[in-house]
Amino acid sequence: MSCYRTFEELIIGEELTPVIKKMTQEKINRYVSIAEDYNPIHTDEEFAKKTPFKGIIAPGYQTMAYISELMSRDFGNAWYVGGKLDIRMVKVVRPGDLLTARAKVVDKKEEDGKNIAVFEVHLKNQDNEDVIIGSAEAAFPKNN
């Protein structure tokens, strides 16, 4: 699989190619049925309107997958085995939102015999507001 990025070629400050996704009510419904998360805040507009969120919101669990997709696409095994994600949900996501997952290389280091690339990660909405912020790491075995 030569499509994956190597540790050596990453440059501090470099932005990875973003992943762009549209959130829909159908995707939310599918997600909550599989996660058995029946909180009506995700599916019932009448209920959701009466909460402080004033409308349906997507589960944070669902949207963080877009950041993982970006890391999987670029790093393969260095993400699947050795990946770390540390994020905060800072703004709600609504059905219809257009979301962009971004990652920027902020550090490269050696730890426990592995090469570690550290990223600042964001999920932004169509108004360029952060909905998720945090950091991620991919771990590359040495001599690979």
Binding site: G60, W79, V81, K84, D86, I87
Partner: peptide
């Protein structure tokens, strides 16, 4: 759901 960490091993 305020924050989340994962380690994949």
């Amino acid at each position: 759901h305020a924050s989340q960490k994962f380690e994949f091993t």
